[in-house]
C-alpha cells in the first residue's frame, strides 16, 4: 500500500474534508453550519473539475 497520498479513501464530492479545514480555522464565531455547507458545495465543484478530465 502506498503512503504518498495526503488523504486516504476520500469519498466522492470531497477534495479537502471540512473536518480538516475546520481544525485549521479554529474557533468559528458565527454560523459554523453555513460555512461548512458552502465549503462543501465549492469543494464538490472542485471535485467535479478534477474528475472531468478522467470521465470525459
Amino acid at each position: 500500500m502506498s503512503n504518498s497520498m495526503t488523504f486516504k479513501n476520500l469519498p466522492p464530492a470531497v477534495c479537502l474534508p471540512w473536518d480538516v479545514k475546520a481544525k485549521e480555522l479554529g474557533e468559528i464565531k458565527g454560523d459554523a453550519d453555513l460555512i461548512k455547507k458552502e465549503w462543501e458545495t465549492l469543494d464538490m465543484f472542485g471535485y467535479i473539475y478534477i474528475w472531468y478530465w478522467v470521465q470525459r
Binding site: 500500500m1 502506498s2 474528475w51
Partner: peptide, 20 residues
C-alpha cells in the same frame, strides 16, 4: 495503482493532470 486505490481524487489532481 496503489496511490490511485488509496485516494483516486488526489492521485488524479496531483499525478494525472500534470502528466496529460
Amino acid at each position: 495503482y496503489d496511490d490511485f486505490i488509496e485516494n483516486p481524487t488526489e492521485w488524479v489532481a496531483t499525478k494525472f493532470l500534470p502528466r496529460i
